[in-house]
Simulated assay, not measured.
Amino acid sequence: MKYFAVFLPMLDEEKSKHYRPDHLSYLEEKSNEGKIFAKGRFTDGTGGLVIYKANDLSEAEEMAKLDPYVAKGARNYEIREWDMVVTKS
């Protein structure tokens, strides 16, 4: 399993507010499937980040495109494979 960081920059704030419940429901569904490592909004209001777990880029991109924020034009997306490094304290 690979990790993919999906940045969700704001395109339309009103659409984002409108589709927020659908977006959160979608993320909950993906989380229950074990497909999300982490998620959250940027505190400056410019968008958010979801780190998906997927077999390859095409699977991660498909999940990103099906997010209601993206599908309904509230957010754009930018995706990068992420190589997580864990450090010991």
Rank of each mutant, 00 (worst) to 15 (best):
A5Q: 10
G48S: 09
F37C: 08
D12S: 03
R75F: 06
S25T: 14
L8G: 03
L24H: 06
K88R: 14
T87V: 15
A5E: 03
A71E: 11
R80W: 12
Y3L: 09
E78L: 13
H23L: 01
G40F: 01
K88P: 06
A54K: 10
E28T: 12
A71N: 11
A64R: 07
S31T: 14
L49S: 09
L24V: 08
F4H: 02
F4R: 01
M1D: 08
Y19P: 02
Y77M: 13
E33S: 13
L57V: 00
V6L: 06
D56R: 10
G73W: 07
S31L: 10
A54R: 12
E81Y: 10
L27D: 13
S16P: 00
E29W: 03
I51T: 07
D83Q: 15
K72T: 11
F4L: 00
M1Y: 06
D67C: 05
W82L: 15
N55M: 12
K30Q: 14
E78V: 15
E61Q: 14
P68Y: 03
S31W: 08
P21A: 00
L49T: 05
P9W: 01
K39D: 03
V50F: 03
Y77K: 07
V6S: 05
Y3A: 09
K15R: 10
H23Y: 01
Y26E: 06
K72P: 05
K2N: 12
Y26D: 06
K39Y: 06
D67S: 10
A74D: 04
R75A: 12
R80C: 11
T46R: 15
D12P: 02
E59Y: 00
Y77C: 13
R20G: 02
K30L: 13
V85Q: 15
R41N: 12
P9T: 07
V70Q: 08
S89K: 15
L24E: 12
I79L: 15
F37V: 05
F37P: 10
S31I: 11
L27G: 08
G45P: 07
L66K: 15
K65P: 06
P68M: 04
H23K: 01
K15Y: 04
G48L: 03
M84N: 14
K88I: 10
I36E: 07
K2G: 02
P68C: 04
G73S: 11
D22I: 05
G47M: 05
R20N: 02
E13V: 06
I36S: 10
K39R: 13
I79K: 11
I51M: 13
G40W: 01
E59L: 00
E14P: 00
E61V: 02
K30E: 15
M84H: 14
M1T: 01
K30M: 13
H23Q: 01
R75W: 07
K65R: 15
F7G: 04
T43E: 08
N55E: 15
P68T: 08
K53F: 02
R80F: 13
S31A: 13
D67T: 09
G40Y: 05
T87I: 14
S25K: 09
L8A: 00
Y3H: 12
K2A: 01
N32C: 06
